[in-house]
Amino acid sequence: MTRFKMIATAALGLSSALGAATAACAADVNIYTSRQPELIQPVLDAFTKDTGLTTATIFIDKGLEQRIAAEGTNSPADLIMTVDVGRLAAAKDAGVTQAVTGEAINENIPAEFQDADHQWFGLTARGRVVYASKDRVDTDALTYQDLASDEWKGRLCTRSGQHQYNIALIAAYIEHYGEDAAREWVTGLRDNLARRPEGGDRDQAKAIFAGECDIALGNTYYVGKMATNEKEPEQKDWANAIKVIMPTFDNGKTHVNISGVALAKNAPNRENAIKLMNFLSSDEAQKIYADLNYEYPLEPGIETSDLVAGFGELNPDDISLSDIASHREEASRIIDEVAYDSGPQS
């Protein structure tokens, strides 16, 4: 293929994608999301009922920020909705977001769950906690540091260290204790592994149920999803086999990650998009969104669902997620340096 043809083909591909996006996003607020649309639709329906404004979503699992950057000023995206502070920070770093100030969302969402430059905002939180065997683990209290102790040698399971949820936890550890201490900690975790890291968080609960390990790292909301899974009822057995332990740093608080939102840089419906951002930070929306996904509202004073309350009291770490996000590259480098994903080495 000649260079001219390659350029023409790439341009045609982008044009086609943009045309499809524009056709799909013909609403008052157009949302690009890496979260499954059904996990956000009920709160969007409540927004439409409240305001009369319509919404449309395009699900983009990978490369969301690259897609918006490629579309440039012609992008139909008004809002970006995603999970994990790393993905929100990546959107900011890619230059596809813009600041929002002087709005209700700035007041409703605590500062530690906002970008320092107001380029993104958390909406709901999930704790990065310990799944522990009800039958084989007696304790109900652990620190994150404890997980690297010899007591747990051969008893720990996790998903890949390079997964965004573990990167965020290690980045938080760096913020608390420094890079050298984090490297030593991750090395200890590696040597406590029962097997090579694999699967997702639910697979770690499954491994505990099967007796392959006794403790695992996982997000709180997966426990709710397993416990209520009617399509795959075997997951209820996995959930019933574990208890949730809220591990803590030295400050007595637990690492949390977020689902969040950002205003797209070239939002064609900016005013409507900000109305949706403000709605998402309201008591009504926080309750709907958190209950739907078995998460914790970020706005103080909103009760969690009974199922989530059953995980135990979450005392979220108050270190700024912006500061945590700044250590993502260091955290990823540590994972590779200690060959974490190769499994235990001692």
Score class of each variant (00 low, 15 high):
F4M: 02
A8G: 01
T9C: 09
A10Y: 01
A10K: 09
S16H: 09
A23L: 02
A26D: 11
A26Y: 01
A27C: 07
D28H: 01
N30L: 01
I31A: 01
T33K: 00
E38G: 06
F47A: 09
D50R: 09
D50M: 03
T51A: 04
G52P: 01
L53G: 03
L53S: 06
A56G: 03
T57D: 00
F59R: 00
F59K: 02
G63T: 08
I68W: 10
G72M: 11
D78C: 02
L79G: 04
V83F: 07
V85F: 01
V85Y: 03
V85Q: 06
A89W: 05
A99L: 11
A99P: 13
A104P: 14
F113R: 08
A116W: 06
D117L: 07
A125N: 08
V129R: 12
V130T: 15
A132H: 13
D146W: 07
R159D: 10
Q162E: 15
A168H: 07
A168Y: 00
A171L: 05
I174N: 05
I174C: 03
E179M: 12
A181E: 15
A181K: 14
R183I: 14
T187A: 11
N192S: 03
D201A: 10
D201P: 14
K206C: 00
G211A: 04
G211E: 04
L217W: 13
L217N: 13
G224E: 04
E230R: 06
E232I: 09
E232P: 04
Q235M: 10
I242Q: 07
N251A: 10
H255N: 15
V261S: 08
L263F: 13
A264N: 09
A264G: 13
R270H: 12
E271W: 11
N272Q: 15
N272I: 13
S281L: 05
D283V: 13
E284M: 05
Q286T: 05
K287V: 10
K287E: 13
Y294F: 15
E295D: 10
L298H: 06
E299L: 12
E299G: 13
E303F: 07
T304C: 11
T304E: 08
S305V: 08
D306G: 02
S322Y: 06
S332N: 04
S332V: 06
R333S: 14
D336S: 07
E337G: 06
A339R: 13
S342F: 14
S342A: 15
P344Y: 02
